[in-house]
Design a protein around this nucleic acid. Sequence first.
DNA 1: GAGCGCCGTTTTTTT
DNA 2: AACGGCGCTC
Length: 803
Amino acid sequence: MSSFDDSDAFEQASLSARAMAARGVDYLDDLNPAQRAAVEQLDGPVLMLAGAGTGKTKALTVRIVHLLKTGTARPDEILAVTFTNKAAREMKDRVGGMLGQPAEGMPWLGTFHAICVKLLRRHAELIGFDRDDVVIESADDRVHLKSNFTILDTDDQLRLLKQLVQAAGIDDKRWPARMLAGIIDDWKNRALTPDKVPAGDAGAFNHKGVELYAQYQRRLVELNAVDFGDLLLHMVCIFQASPDILEQYRRWFRYILVDEYQDTNVAQYLWLRLLAGGHRNICCVGDDDQSIYGWRGAEVGNILRFEKDFPGAKVVRLEQNYRSTPHILAAASNVIRGNENRLGKELWTEAQDGEKVRLIGHWDGEEEARWIGEEIEAMQGGTRRARPFGLDEMAVLVRASHQMRAFEDRFLTIGLPYRVIGGPRFYERMEIRDAMAYFRVVVSPEDDLAFERIVNTPKRGLGDKARQTIQATARAQGVPLLRGAAIAVENGLIKGKGGAALRDLVTGLARWGRMVGDAGVTHIELAEIILDESGYTAMWQNDKTPEAPGRLENLKELVKALEGFENLQGFLEHVSLIMENDAGDAGAKVSIMTLHAAKGLEFPAVFLPGWEDGLFPSQRSMDETGLKGLEEERRLAYVGITRAEEVCTISFAGNRRVYGQWQSAMPSRFIDELPEDHVEVLTPPGLYGSTGGSMGGSTPAPTVDSRAARADVYNSPGWKRMQARAARPGQSTGLSQPRESRTVVIDAEAVSSFARGERVFHQKFGYGEITGIEGDKVEVAFEKAGTKKVVARFLSASDDIPF
DNA sequence: GAGCGCCGTTTTTTT
DNA sequence: AACGGCGCTC
């Protein structure tokens, strides 16, 4: 609100900006021509296609500075949107740094969600419904949001949905609330209110999806709550329904900047298009080749369509890369070239040659982890060709988080310090949610979901029965649960220990509530009082599980985090939007993370393990969305390779344990797409016959040297067979050979090569006899390991064994 | 109401 | 394999 009213501060700010502008625009000098073009075109639609490592953030920040310093816009007239808080913070810092003063004067630089919260708080009353089924008599005949609405987290959302699913008489086992949450989320991402859900989606969730969605939206309003999707959805609805309000903001936000435009979903796209509709001063920055969030509603189409949406748009390509060696760029470029749907960019660099992308194949996942662990240790000391790398200069990037375990296990055993990025986030941990729920109830006694969470945490002897009593009382009186609980206690409806404990809780909450505005108690002290007097701290102190001490630590951290805020409300607001990752622990460590988490980061040395068909590209992705999915996987490969500055090492394993079962796999088709000239195939130590995949004719022929003597397990026919298949000669691109046909061949071969009663050999379990065959799975009675079901491909006829 | 054991699931993740 | 959720039993 303040930003709309007190414009004096901004007058002054822009005056000094003009003064600075008079001194010249030297900040433009260290931009390259493309960056400069994107910065200087201030008016009209601009699409900045910024490849990986091309100085995108720099161009974006300079553009903001340019808008300010030329006096084109005041700080509060610029709407600058990002996806993550991290990106927002970085931009704020950099703009502030360039201006030589904190950029706090930019109230509209933030994430989509943070900005929407601000807007929605001003117009909350526009979201609601007419009360047609009068249950509770009230002066209002319309139920609507209030500006102090709460933002539900996923947990609250699920609990609410589950209640609705059960109330609708649907078996929540066959139709889990999670699924419904996903469907609703999808609809919200597409800016579909219940009445706009297309007929084609009507069958969703046992034909009850739309109805439940409508009920859910109603309940949210009744609870004075919104979920994340609502933040955008509601604002789009308001803009669409109230042209005058839209007009007001169109006039206010004179310049719009959008970061990571390729990640926008339909709702965000509509929101932007509505706001930019008048002046069209919108600059979208993004990289279609790095769109990797299609599975959560992002539409690459938005960026591909930009010129159609904004005719006359200026499109600037940032293609000069300042991050990686030419070999790495060539590898990335060649892979991404396989995508049909892209605008097309070619990264180039002035950098010198550097090392080729390294490729190595391993027998199994453990072997791969072992090798990478050793390689990391070796690279710390420096190798013949490469400089020494610090641990924090190296990263292992995986496709799926379950792949991280192999590396954690391995690094733990060899004592290699590592850090996992993107693990369970601080504010998603149980104890933090519990504590926050206490704060929420204290601050807003009508927060039913929070009350439900804490009513029996710690255990107060309040089970289902007590809960039902409380709920019935509250419903009968038309009051929130906490008030209902108070009434139930007064009337002695809950007996025994539980009743006494509930009385304590209710009086406690009331007491703490009175302390919220009390000047004598800081909010930090209040937080401690709440956690102690409620018995929550004691609960963990008495807990003997190994996690308990850590949880107490986290609670301490939570209280410490309060220091940065003026009151509990402010903190709760912040947390519901931030969900920050507090991986701030110091010390040089190797980073392990998913490819998704790695977007936007860079490391001198990068390891990309698990490049096997089915794992990467992920089978599921291809099954669910076909070519679209494959292209997104390929972009993920592109993102992975372009994270590397100096050394990029790609690897695959022939066998891997997936969900407890051994599975063998082909090297990833993306490996076929790596350009031979820029790849060096490494030979694993002690491995005879390694070819490192289907690098075709250029692959150094495996040499029969002294290593042959050490060839033990790797010399098995199964391994050789896999190698032979992986190394089909003459296929350097892989494009000409459909992968499917190869897979079929292998399966047929594998299935047909064994018969019941045959004696076989298995790498892990030794010798055995086949007792049954089902498809490609074979039951084998092993001599030492007992009877097990294994994948046929993993077996070899025992007479093949050369020793 | 708490504890145990069975069953089903299992990509990627921000806000 | 490993975890979480649910239902059953005490």
